[in-house]
Amino acid sequence: MLFDLPDFKTLYAALLARDDRFDGQAFVGVASTGVFCRLTCPARKPKAENCTFFATIGECIDAGYRACKRCHPLQAAALADPAIGALLQALDGQPDRRWSEGDVARLGYDPSTIRRSFKRQFGMTFLEMARQRRLREGFTALAEGAKVITAQHEASFESASAFRAAFARLLGCAPADLRADALLRATWIPTPLGDMIAVSSHTHLHLLEFVDRKALPAELRRLQAAARQPIGVGAQPPSDQAAAELADYFAARSSRFTTPLAVAGSAFTQSVWDALRTIPAGQTRSYSDIARQIGRPSAVRAVARANGANQIALMIPCHRVIGADGALTGYGGGLWRKQRLIEIERKLMILNKEIAS
């Protein structure tokens, strides 16, 4: 099953408080208006007697409700904000531009409001996101064999030291240290939910993380220490396979991942990761569910730690683990991503059921 909805009192309190812990996990149908909303909807709150709570969008539609035009429950929460959508579109149109708060203001938006909105939804500001996009261009150039100075220009960094510093913060080494013949090589994979870094050997994928994950530099350092040499740059067969499978996943064509994975952890940790991979797309489990599944019902906290130690995102689906009360819990890639991933997978589940019938 997906998960059991909390009781009415808990959900109605979450609706009144616009509690984002249940965003994407529960929806409210309002009898007096005939619409269904996210619990974080900014519209005036309905009376309790007019509310019915549902676990999925499909249930809301089946019950005869139509989507709210304020909170756009059919869209990812982040993209429901018109200002965010417009700026993301502008960034896509000019990825190599050195964006500034002045540019944001000239587009008609208050820079401080935009800064808070992006930080809340993406864990980074719009300017940080734009800088990351430029860094992707430099990374791609290096992967194609370009010299560092060429990569710096591709990334639109005027200062060589700034380019080196930005690169070092991301990969833990200077761009000149990257080797094309390294055992482990990193490649950059763009996705609709943000760019990802994949690190693989010739035979296995060792890491797959969103670029803005705070733990990424430490994870890369551990991989480098294990390999006893710096991580190189360039595609390998497993990272190419991962990119193709991720494209199918985000297009809601397939949730099946067959890329060979190299996982390093204790026997307990690997048992947790194995359990995560048995959760069907479109469904969720709690930490206590996983603990019971692996035969360690009292090890809930240890399961949570193992879940957080996963460094192969999506393919080892730690995003499918939620709180016992159905609330979204911590996710290294950001709760907004966790909510969107669950939505994507529920869409996949519905499509698979339609095909089967």
Rank of each mutant, 00 (worst) to 15 (best):
Ala168His: 06
Arg296Glu: 13
Tyr249Arg: 10
His202Cys: 03
Ala215Leu: 00
Ala281Leu: 07
Leu276Tyr: 10
Ala291Met: 09
Ala168Ser: 10
Val211Glu: 13
Ile312Leu: 01
Leu193Ala: 10
Gln229Lys: 10
Ser254Tyr: 10
Val211Leu: 12
Leu183Glu: 13
Ser254His: 07
Arg179Asn: 12
Ala251Pro: 01
Tyr249Gln: 10
Gln270Lys: 09
Pro217Leu: 14
Ile189Pro: 09
Val263Cys: 01
Asp212Tyr: 01
Pro190Lys: 09
Arg179Leu: 14
Ala313Trp: 12
Ala186Asn: 05
Asn307Thr: 15
Arg285Gly: 04
Phe250Glu: 03
Ala251Gln: 03
Gly265Lys: 02
Thr259Arg: 02
Gln224Lys: 04
Leu223Cys: 07
Ala313Val: 05
Leu170Ala: 09
Leu178Gly: 08
Lys214Asn: 13
Arg296Trp: 09
Leu314Thr: 14
Arg305Asp: 03
Trp273Leu: 04
Leu314Asp: 13
Arg185Val: 02
Ser288Asn: 00
Phe210Leu: 12
Asp181Arg: 15
Arg277His: 06
Arg221Lys: 11
His206Thr: 04
Ala267Glu: 08
Leu170Asp: 04
Ala218Ser: 08
His202Phe: 06
Gly282Gln: 13
Thr269Arg: 04
Thr284Arg: 12
Leu246Tyr: 11
Ile231Asn: 09
Ile231Phe: 11
Phe257Pro: 00
Ala304Ile: 10
Ala309Ser: 11
Ala262Tyr: 11
Pro237Lys: 00
Tyr249Leu: 09
Tyr287Gln: 07
Met196Trp: 14
Leu246Val: 09
Ala168Glu: 08
Gly295Pro: 10
Leu216Ser: 02
Ala174Gln: 10
Gly234Tyr: 13
Val303Ser: 05
Asp274Lys: 11
Pro260His: 00
Ala275His: 06
Asn310Met: 08
Pro217Tyr: 13
Leu170Arg: 08
Thr269Tyr: 02
Gly234Cys: 13
Arg169Cys: 14
Arg213Gln: 14
Ala267Gly: 02
Ala226Asn: 01
Pro260Arg: 01
Ala227Leu: 03
Pro190Ser: 11
Gln224Asp: 05
Ala291Cys: 11
Pro238Ser: 03
